[in-house]
């Protein structure tokens, strides 16, 4: 009886869930074979009966209320991320942006690696979607630990959530500590120049900072995985930047999109573009000679190499794309 009614937890089969739920409340106990589309990543979670789901949700709520959970030194709250933050992003990943990942095998399964990606889209949806991609679709279900600007941690709510979801400040000590601990670290070296660039500059990579990410990777001896994200540029076409308001609010830019700010909250709804996230061949850094991280020439060359790889991949993906929204 307990496993008679099955509610798939994945939004991919939401209507199935509703149907079974209705038939269940009517007292109909006919066992219904589990919908195969929902079980794309196995594990027991997808096969729970609804009372087990309720029990698990209750246990989760109890642990949260009593503070009975683990947080690492960076403030990463794995339980909150897996139970609350990722599930709320999953519909966007699967339904809204219909993200397709390419080359996930290029991301190492166990060891540390540095994922370097292009940044775009006014709000960092690209970072969130890359996290979902690696967590849900990488065979080793890897948690991406992102490096963010200090502005992120200065802001209320956003800063606290960023730390809880595993982000930390983009600085070399943190990057090396994470990489040395075998974590998968994500970095968006274009920073605000990339995410806040005008729509006409879409898919043109901006300057890659000072190459601090390269020296961190060399020091930790981990490979750099270039990651190219197509689709994020179109979610909020940034038509203009009102600098005085940005200065007033202490923000790096204040965007004007077709829907923002004149439509208010509606303007924060991203356009449903079709996304592709491609992970390229890892670039080895461990073969460099000792002390290579202090050689600015080598660091800049490597940084350029990563940048070129991402830019070329972007152009290739764009050439294959026929429609912004349909892919």
């Amino acid at each position: 009886m307990a496993d008679a009614r099955v509610i798939p937890l994945y939004p991919g089969s939401g209507n199935v869930a509703r149907q079974t739920g209705r038939s269940g409340s009517g007292g109909d106990s006919s066992s219904r074979p589990y919908d195969a589309t929902a079980s794309d990543e196995g594990s027991g979670e997808g096969r729970m009966s609804w009372d087990e789901t309720v029990a698990e949700a209750l246990a989760f709520a109890r642990r949260r209320v009593l503070g009975d959970y683990e947080v690492d030194e960076f403030g990463f709250d794995a339980e909150l991320t897996d139970h609350l933050l990722l599930p709320s992003l999953r519909p966007f990943y699967e339904k809204w942006f219909r993200v397709e990942t390419i080359g996930l095998h290029n991301v190492p399964a166990e060891s540390g690696a540095l994922v370097v990606a292009n940044h775009s889209g006014t709000l960092p949806w690209d970072a969130l979607m890359t996290t979902v991609a690696l967590r849900d679709h990488h065979p080793a279900s890897r948690q991406l630990r992102m490096l963010g600007a200090d502005l992120v941690f200065r802001m209320p709510v956003v800063g606290a959530l960023a730390r809880k979801s595993g982000q930390t400040l983009a600085c070399n000590p943190d990057a090396e500590r994470l990489l040395g601990g075998g974590e998968l670290v994500g970095v968006w070296p274009e920073g605000f120049k990339g995410i806040g660039k005008p729509f006409r500059d879409r898919y043109k990579l901006q300057r890659f900072g000072r190459g601090g990410f390269v020296s961190a990777a060399i020091r930790a001896g981990v490979p750099i995985v270039p990651c190219s994200i197509v689709g994020a540029e179109e979610i909020y076409p940034n038509l203009a930047d009102i600098k005085p308001i940005a200065r007033l609010l202490g923000l790096p830019y204040f965007p004007v999109t077709p829907l923002f700010p004149h439509f208010g909250p509606l303007g924060t709804v991203p356009l449903p573009s079709k996304w592709y996230i491609e992970f390229g061949e890892p670039i080895d850094t461990s073969s460099n000679p000792e002390g290579a991280e202090n050689d600015p020439m080598l660091v800049f060359n490597l940084s350029d190499q990563v940048r070129e790889t991402i830019q070329e991949t972007l152009y290739r993906l764009l050439a294959q794309r026929r429609n912004v929204f349909l892919g």
């Binding site: 030194e73 960076f74 502005l151 930390t168 600085c171 000590p173």
Partner: peptide, 12 residues
């Protein structure tokens, strides 16, 4: 401060 590294070593 928000610009702090996650962990301080004695040299920082």
């Amino acid at each position: 401060s928000p610009r702090d590294p996650a962990m301080f070593t004695e040299d920082m």
